[in-house]
Design a protein around this nucleic acid. Sequence first.
DNA 1: GCGCTAAGTTAGTAATTACTTACTTACTTA
DNA 2: TAAGTAAGTAAGTAATTACTAACTTAGCGC
Lengths: 202, 202
Amino acid sequence: MDPRAKQLPADERRTVTVAAVIELAGSQNPSEITTAAIAQHMHLTQGALFRHFASKEAIWQAVMEWVADRLLARIDRAAEGLTSPMAALQAMYLSHIEFIVAHPGVPRMMFGELQRAESTPAKRVAQTLIERYAERLGQRIEQGKALGEMAPDLDTQAAAVLFIGTIQGLVMHSMLSGDIQQIRTRAPGVFALYQRSLRGAA
Amino acid sequence: MDPRAKQLPADERRTVTVAAVIELAGSQNPSEITTAAIAQHMHLTQGALFRHFASKEAIWQAVMEWVADRLLARIDRAAEGLTSPMAALQAMYLSHIEFIVAHPGVPRMMFGELQRAESTPAKRVAQTLIERYAERLGQRIEQGKALGEMAPDLDTQAAAVLFIGTIQGLVMHSMLSGDIQQIRTRAPGVFALYQRSLRGAA
DNA sequence: GCGCTAAGTTAGTAATTACTTACTTACTTA
DNA sequence: TAAGTAAGTAAGTAATTACTAACTTAGCGC
């Protein structure tokens, strides 16, 4: 049934490894993912992993880089060409939600990495990701104020923090219910509220 | 300097152990806290811990119970006697922020527990805590709608999710900056936005 | 088809970790 | 003060984990 792993060129094997970790993180605590579990999930022996990665930490770094690249590309593509800053924020929000539904392990890995005390390479990648993300949010919010779509007295940084909190709240909720799909049905309602907070007081 | 631990009665020793874990979680990844580290932090040998707790899991359960009791008591006390639902939410919010500043390890532990795949006793306590928390939020929001302080068409559950997200966003932000105190200065701005979203559209 | 190299396997190792147990010390109370 | 008990110590153990090294096998260029 599981005769033996097909041989793959090194870069492909690395790609597949990253995918395996992302998948595993969807169903178990990322900090408890062992190299043995990763290898097993790929139908490979544990030792083979170390032909392609110098250490477990290097695997995590590759995983976080994959996440950073894909997520930023995704929200950029979603907001591309949208002149309305509010519409752009909404598009970024919804594409982020879809990303999480497709890869439920991602928010868990992100939080897990940021939690670390030491500054590992993987943690630094996660930090840079959020910084870049916040930059993009800040730009759109500033635009929104300039164009009159958002309240002129809006606290840009608070609005960026709340945007991320919006998603975090949904993630928290889905972890409680255990059903990731729920995040999709709850998302619009939460964003509607967020939108109101940007528009200004009554 | 550190001659030997003073002997303590069992219940006091358990209390001190919980405090030690909470403290440790403030400066390191909760999932990496070992029983040896806990014991060392209390100036005790590792073996002594198991005189008072059947297992490490039992320690975590006690810790989460401590958190649940204190946090719920704190937000209840803060909102007590406030007739305005909006003012009550704000009081709960601010007292929660103060709780986090006093015990920065708590949100990390909460998230870490909820992340677990298996249903451990500690995880169940964390789940119950959030459920109770959400209940209280829901009550106040419903009151706010009934009294006209909040938009009548407000999505109660979305508002509760966003409330928690509000705090989660601040926690995320503080984990990035590495400075927990920042959460205190950023908190009012974020709550101001949240408040706007409850009041209703322009 | 031959030979070289990249990829995978197998069976380790050292370090760490939760937990145990036999013994010792401190405290209480009769 | 003597005895009993609760609390703490010291030195383990078995299991797990990341990583290694000696070997086997697959696949590609000539």
